[in-house]
């Protein structure tokens, strides 16, 4: 059987959705409370890494593969740049061109929540992709190291 024991799997199944939810909360409230795109993205990535550790590589990759992680990574980064470029419509790069709204409300602070979401998507996908790369690359190196040894025997 792939992955860890049934105790770990059950706990991970229950906990993961809460971790993702907490990560999303940190991203969305980034402009009001401590946190923001980067910490929230790290928390979301941690949830996926937890799934990979508990259920094994294949299960995690089936739901969220390396291709889509890399695509989301680039989309997040490009989204952040696009928000910055849209500021040029108001005359300045990175200009906060949306109505700032009432302070301390969830929908306020103009482009900041949007930038936080873009960063959150980028960071979560990127850290998960780094973890995938380490998992896949580690296996490949071990296999390469083992095979010549077998030939010698």
């Amino acid at each position: 059987m792939q992955g860890m024991t049934i105790i770990v799997k059950t706990v991970v199944r229950i906990v993961t959705s809460f971790i993702v939810l907490y990560g999303i909360y940190i991203v969305l409230y980034g402009h009001l409370t401590p946190g923001g795109g980067f910490p929230g993205g790290v928390i979301v990535a941690a949830a996926y890494i937890l799934i990979m550790l508990a259920y094994g590589k294949e299960v995690a990759l089936r739901s969220f593969g390396d291709k889509s992680a890399s695509l989301l990574d680039n989309l997040g980064a490009f989204g952040f740049l696009a928000i910055a470029l849209l500021g040029l419509t108001g005359g300045y790069f990175f200009l906060n061109f949306i109505n700032h709204g009432q302070p301390f409300r969830l929908v306020s602070a103009g482009t900041l929540p949007l930038s936080n979401i873009a960063i959150g998507v980028k960071v979560s996908a990127c850290l998960y992709a780094v973890f995938i790369a380490l998992a896949i690359f580690g296996r490949a190196v071990y296999r390469a190291m083992e095979e010549p040894g077998k030939e010698e025997r």
């Binding site: 291709k67 890399s70 695509l71 680039n74 989309l75 980064a77 490009f78 740049l81 910055a84 470029l85 040029l88 790069f93 990175f94």
Partner: peptide, 21 residues
Amino acid sequence: LPLFIAIPLGAAFLGLIIAKL
């Protein structure tokens, strides 16, 4: 001036997205 930073960044990220096609 900001284009000196924005153009290469955009080319990098957009290039990787389109490169899948």
